[in-house]
């Protein structure tokens, strides 16, 4: 029979302090690796220099001034406007298709949901680049040219499932007797939808809208094929600026986009926090 300390040594060939060092040391370093690029992109945007030298050469707002100048950065403004328009319309489209689907699926049998749901969620896992090409081929067959509207349609197909998933997580937690009670009490179908079902679904719908908006704004793989030359979108415009000249205005654009993400994230946390 072995002594207990000998036993312990065999059980744990690596000392416990090494585990602490691994989790807290390596874990924190990994977290820094994750966040550092965001910090670097923001600080880069305030450089006074002409190049992407880091640490930046002095502090200035010159690249933000250049970015907000309507003459010098006209193309960028149009691209940003296009992207916001597409993202807004994609959210609207997702609402129209995904919210009714969520309500319907919540009323269906589990077996039926199990068959239909993978079909609705498939666009989330299959490579969107392949989908962009497929959509271009079909659109071309039917006689549609790449355009803003075609891009919106593509975004609704690819990102609508995000809205469905976010809303159905909430829908699963809703007691069906609430809607039944409303009907029993004499409310019409529409009143029940407006006063009971939709308000209960709202946190999920907001979370979905937020996800669809962010993803649409950032999308390259679908817009690459479906947007025409006139409707340049923001990520593709930034891509072009990076490839052509490494314009430091891209740093200022990054700064604006990161700030926007932060604000939206903080607002979303405020709005969605009570539901958790």
């Amino acid at each position: 029979m072995r002594s207990s300390s000998e036993n312990r040594a065999l059980e744990n060939p690596l000392p416990a302090w090494l585990y602490k060092a691994f989790v807290f040391g390596f874990g924190s370093l990994s977290l820094i690796y994750l966040v550092a690029p965001i910090v670097i992109a923001i600080t880069m945007s305030f450089t006074a220099g002409q190049t992407l030298k880091y640490p930046p050469e002095g502090f200035s707002l010159r690249w933000y001034e250049a970015l907000f100048d309507p003459v010098a950065s006209g193309t960028e403004h149009i691209a940003a406007f296009n992207s916001l328009k597409i993202a807004g319309l994609a959210v609207l489209g997702s609402l129209l298709f995904a919210v009714p689907a969520t309500i319907g699926m919540a009323r269906m049998k589990r077996s039926a949901v199990g068959t239909i749901e993978p079909l609705l969620l498939a666009p989330l896992v299959l490579p969107s680049l392949a989908y962009g090409l497929a959509a271009l081929i079909v659109a071309n067959f039917v006689g549609f040219q790449p355009s803003l509207w075609l891009t919106v349609a593509g975004h609704v197909v690819v990102f609508g499932p995000l809205m469905y998933r976010a809303a159905s997580v909430v829908a699963q937690g809703i007691n069906p007797s609430l809607a039944e009670a409303s009907i029993v009490m004499g409310a019409t179908w529409f009143t029940t939808l407006r006063r009971v079902t939709l308000p209960l679904l709202l946190p999920g719908i907001l979370a979905g809208a937020f996800l669809v908006f962010i993803q649409s704004l950032d999308n390259v793989s679908v817009s690459l094929f479906l947007a025409d030359a006139r409707t340049t979108v923001l990520p593709l415009r930034m891509f072009a600026l990076i490839e052509e000249s490494l314009d430091v205005r891209v740093a200022a654009m990054s700064g604006v986009l990161i700030c926007l993400t932060l604000i939206v994230l903080l607002v979303a946390r405020r709005v969605l926090a009570p539901s958790r």
């Binding site: 966040v35 880069m44 390259v220």
Partner: peptide, 26 residues
């Protein structure tokens, strides 16, 4: 800290890496 980079545009994160990996980078 996980959500910020995840929700930040892919192009922005790629740009950050151009700065980091470049000849004049950190």
């Amino acid at each position: 800290l996980t959500l910020i980079p995840m929700l930040t545009s892919n192009v922005v994160r790629t740009f950050a890496w151009i700065v980091i990996l470049g000849r004049q980078g950190p």
